[in-house]
């Protein structure tokens, strides 16, 4: 299998504090990789290093085949990113947002136009395509935002708590979109606080105090920790 993310002893320190402590793992092509951890365990810091917006203190990592130290610009062109905090511009319409994000990834006008049409049709947005994004429900925004992150056919999509506060039905529709993208060969790297969503992942890593304490398929994790659900696995691990 092709490895699209490879991290070896990746470390990030702020002064005396080691936020990410020598994590080593890899993610395979087309995999849905769940990146879990308590608040403050170092998830966000690790993710920032992988998407090329933060310099690691030591260690090495390759994302989509590019080095996180030297080839950060190439990484950015080959990944998609969606965070809970910032997704779309509330004061632009759905169409304008798509056009804008297509534009910053250098897609041609024709490509943007045809992709916009496909996307709007797939998400059933025909009626709201000219509405401001700010007026849409959160779940819709997150779905649009995920599609936008996929616009430039990235090899990997990083999702930072994509479903926080979204209703259970939309949350599942969102995961169906994730399955579909993964099925088409896009690698998904996702963080979440919903432990039922951890069960949807192919493999899951759990970070505790800057280190990866467990990494396996949900099934194997539940077996080895003798737990009924991922929630119990998480509680057992993170409580220490």
């Amino acid at each position: 299998m092709e490895k699209v993310i490879e991290a070896k002893s990746l470390t990030k320190s702020f002064g005396d504090f080691t936020a990410v402590n020598a994590i080593t793992f890899h993610v395979e092509k087309g995999e849905i990789f769940g990146f879990l951890g308590a608040n403050g365990a170092g998830k966000t810091t690790a993710m920032k290093m992988l998407i090329g917006i933060s310099n690691p203190t030591s260690g090495e990592a390759k994302v989509a085949g590019f080095d996180v130290f030297k080839q950060r610009e190439s990484i950015k062109n080959n990944i998609g990113y969606m965070s809970q905090k910032f997704a779309l511009y509330d004061d632009l319409t759905v169409k304008e947002n798509i056009t804008f994000f297509g534009g910053i990834y250098g897609l041609s006008r024709e490509v943007i136009k045809s992709k916009t049409q496909v996307l709007i049709k797939e998400l059933n947005l025909e009626e709201v395509e000219n509405q401001l994004v700010g007026s849409l429900p959160l779940g819709w925004k997150q779905k649009i935002s995920f599609s936008v992150a996929l616009l430039h056919n990235p090899k990997i999509v990083f999702l930072d708590e994509p479903t926080g506060g979204v209703d259970p039905i939309t949350r599942r529709q969102f995961w169906e979109m994730i399955y579909k993208a993964a099925n088409q060969g896009t690698t998904i790297f996702v963080t979440t606080h919903y432990m039922d969503e951890a069960e949807y992942c192919d493999r899951v890593s759990i970070m505790v105090n800057g280190k990866i304490e467990a990494l396996d398929t949900p099934k194997n994790l539940k077996n080895s920790y003798k737990a009924d659900s991922m929630n119990d696995v998480f509680l057992k691990l993170a409580r220490g």
Binding site: N39, G165, H193, F234
Partner: peptide, 8 residues
């Protein structure tokens, strides 16, 4: 909201 399962 936004809090990890342990703290929750």
């Amino acid at each position: 909201t936004g809090v990890d399962p342990v703290s929750r």
